[in-house]
């Protein structure tokens, strides 16, 4: 018995969501009175791997093979499953990121394991059961799911647990596993990443705007507000449908589901499909000129007013606050 956490790297670095997954996996290992091992795949320097010790990973398996430099979910899943076997890990934890979503189901099949994707809490283990609260119905509800199999996979939602320090000295061990040729069926030709932008799925603060903004030319103030806050930008579906903003910013039932600490919705009516993707945000601020807009019913703070007047004032107030 032990816990294995997969630590996803991007260009040799770990993001906050990885430290969060390690913190969460450490808490599960403590709960189960067992050890935590992390597994990293790709080129990551020892110094960066050592960082994982801060959050409780006493042992780090480092896999660096030429064929595994870039992400191939099939091969990565084989390596992680082999590591789970080596460590006798019966619980595997990942981030519910885009890569995690491509990996976790494959590992689950390999290990004949139940998978709780979008986990939002620590498991409850009363009476020998293993129950996890996870999002369902696109964020409109939660399903308390029992993992009844011997092996268990958990994909943690970003911002659900938080980063918790638990410093130990991380021992780094290199690890290699056989890669079948059939595991390398996909080849990455290009990776395009907007490095100057905060990625929406794991952003802590999000500024979002809707059709109330009238046109793409008016997003300057939204970006300025987001920059000042260090927030990611998002939008409603009609906005991305009209190509005012890229589809990757579309949140809601048919877009991405997010759960930041702060969600500021500007000129968005609050249709049920929009709320589905954002209602698990910790704090919601709504700015809308219509006091009857449904979004106000689920908001913590609201301003009834014209976005074209309120947002510039908000930017000024924020600048004053930061000064």
């Amino acid at each position: 018995m032990s816990v294995l956490v997969y630590v996803e790297q991007a260009e040799g670095k770990f993001k906050k969501s990885v430290f969060e997954a390690v913190s969460y996996a450490k808490a599960i290992a403590d709960q189960q009175s067992t050890n935590l091992t992390a597994i990293s795949i790709g080129d990551v320097a020892d110094g960066e791997l050592k960082e994982l010790g801060k959050y409780g990973a006493a042992k780090v398996l480092n896999v660096s093979a030429e064929q595994l430099k870039t992400f191939v979910n099939q091969a990565y899943a084989s390596v992680i499953a082999a590591a789970a076997e080596k460590e006798s890990a019966d619980i595997v934890v990942l981030s519910n990121s885009f890569s995690g979503k491509g990996l976790a189901p494959r590992i689950a099949v390999k290990l004949k394991a139940g998978l709780a994707d979008g986990a939002v809490e620590l498991p409850k283990t009363d009476g020998g059961k293993f129950e996890i609260k996870k999002t369902a119905f696109s964020g409109k509800a939660f399903a308390i799911t029992e993992l009844t199999s011997a092996n268990k996979i958990i994909a943690l939602n970003p911002n659900a647990f938080g980063v918790k320090e638990n410093a130990v000295e991380a021992v780094i061990e290199s690890f290699s596993a056989d890669i079948k040729q059939s595991d390398l069926g996909t080849v990455i030709k290009e990776i395009v990443r907007a490095t100057d932008k905060i990625s929406l799925p794991d952003a802590e603060l999000v500024v979002s705007a809707g059709r109330g903004l009238k046109g793409p030319e008016n997003w300057g103030m939204i970006e300025e507000l987001a920059n000042l806050l260090g927030a990611a930008t998002a939008c409603s579906k009609p906005v991305s449908d009209a190509d005012w903003r890229p589809h990757s910013e579309h949140v809601g039932q048919t877009g991405i589901s997010i759960s930041p600490n702060l969600y500021i919705a500007i000129g968005i009516s609050g249709a049920i499909q929009h709320l589905a993707g954002v209602s698990s945000s910790k704090v919601i601020v709504v700015i809308n000129k219509d006091s009857e807009a449904p979004f106000f019913k689920v908001a913590d703070y609201g301003i009834v007013g014209d976005a074209f007047e309120v947002v510039p004032k908000l930017i000024e107030a924020l600048k004053a606050h930061k000064a």
Partner: peptide, 28 residues
């Protein structure tokens, strides 16, 4: 391998705190 035991809906939020449009510094 899995079984849903129970469902839960998100806790309702309290009433919205409305801030006058000219008091953005109060919101901050």
């Amino acid at each position: 391998v899995t079984k849903v035991v129970k469902y839960d809906t998100p806790a309702p939020r309290g009433a919205v705190n409305l801030i006058p449009a000219d008091q953005t510094e109060e919101l901050i």
